[in-house]
C-alpha cells in the first residue's frame, strides 16, 4: 500500500473516531461507552497508521470498519420491524450517515489493498512519492474529509446540546404513527 493511500485511510479513521467521540454526548450510557471506546480506538489507530510504515492490524481494522455499519443497520431494522422507535436512540442521522460513508471507504480501501497484496500486485510498501504530489494528495484528502466531518460534528452538537431535550429530530422521522 502506498504512503498516500495509507494516509488517506488514516484521515478517514480520524474523522470517524472524532464523530464517534462526539456522539457520546447525548447517547444512553451503554451506547455512550461503546461509542467512546470505538472512537478512542479509531483515533489511536489512525495516529499509528500515520506514524507507522504500514496499516496496523489491517484485517481487524477491516472488521472494525464494517461492524458499526452492520450493527447500525441491524438496530434500525429491528426498531422498524418492532415498530418501536423509542427502543432506538436519539442520534443524528447526518452524523451516522457520514460515519458510514467514511467507514465504507476505509473498509473498501483495506479490502482492495489486502486482495492486491495477496496477488502480489499493488504499490510496494513504503513507496516514496514525490514531495509535491504527496502534499497535494494530503491537502485534497484532508479538506475533503474535513468538509464531511465538520457538518457531522456540528450535527452531533446540535442533537446533543443545542436543542432542548425531546424537541430535536431523533433517529427516526415522525411518520404519524406515534399515536399507536
Amino acid at each position: 500500500m502506498s504512503t498516500i493511500t495509507r494516509t488517506w485511510i488514516a484521515f478517514a479513521a480520524l474523522g470517524t473516531g472524532t464523530i464517534h467521540l462526539a456522539l457520546v454526548i447525548g447517547a444512553p450510557l451503554p451506547l455512550g461507552i461503546a461509542l467512546g471506546a470505538l472512537g478512542v480506538t479509531e483515533v489511536l489507530w489512525s495516529l499509528f497508521a500515520m506514524a507507522g510504515s504500514r496499516l496496523p492490524a489491517p484485517r481487524l481494522a477491516l472488521l472494525g470498519a464494517m461492524a458499526p455499519i452492520v450493527l447500525g443497520a441491524v438496530v434500525l431494522f429491528a426498531a422498524v420491524s418492532l415498530d418501536a422507535p423509542a427502543a432506538g436512540f436519539r442520534l443524528p442521522l447526518l452524523a451516522l450517515a457520514i460515519t458510514a460513508v467514511l467507514e465504507f471507504a476505509i473498509a473498501t480501501a483495506i479490502a482492495v489493498s489486502l486482495r492486491r497484496s495477496a496477488h502480489g500486485a499493488g504499490a510496494p510498501e513504503n513507496a516514496v512519492p514525490h514531495t509535491g504530489r504527496y502534499l497535494v494528495a494530503l491537502l485534497v484528502a484532508g479538506m475533503a474529509v474535513a468538509s464531511l466531518v465538520t457538518p457531522a460534528l456540528a450535527a452531533t452538537e446540535a442533537g446533543g446540546a443545542a436543542v432542548p431535550h425531546g424537541e430535536h429530530p431523533g433517529f427516526f422521522v415522525d411518520n404519524g404513527h406515534s399515536g399507536h
Binding site: M50, L138, G142, T150, P151
Partner: peptide
C-alpha cells in the same frame, strides 16, 4: 464559524499526518 472549523480540522489532519509520517 462553521467554515473556520472546516479549515481548522483540515489543516490539523494534514499537519499531523505530515509531522508523524514524513
Amino acid at each position: 464559524n462553521g467554515a473556520d472549523n472546516v479549515l481548522h480540522f483540515g489543516s490539523a489532519i494534514v499537519l499531523l499526518a505530515v509531522a508523524l509520517g514524513a
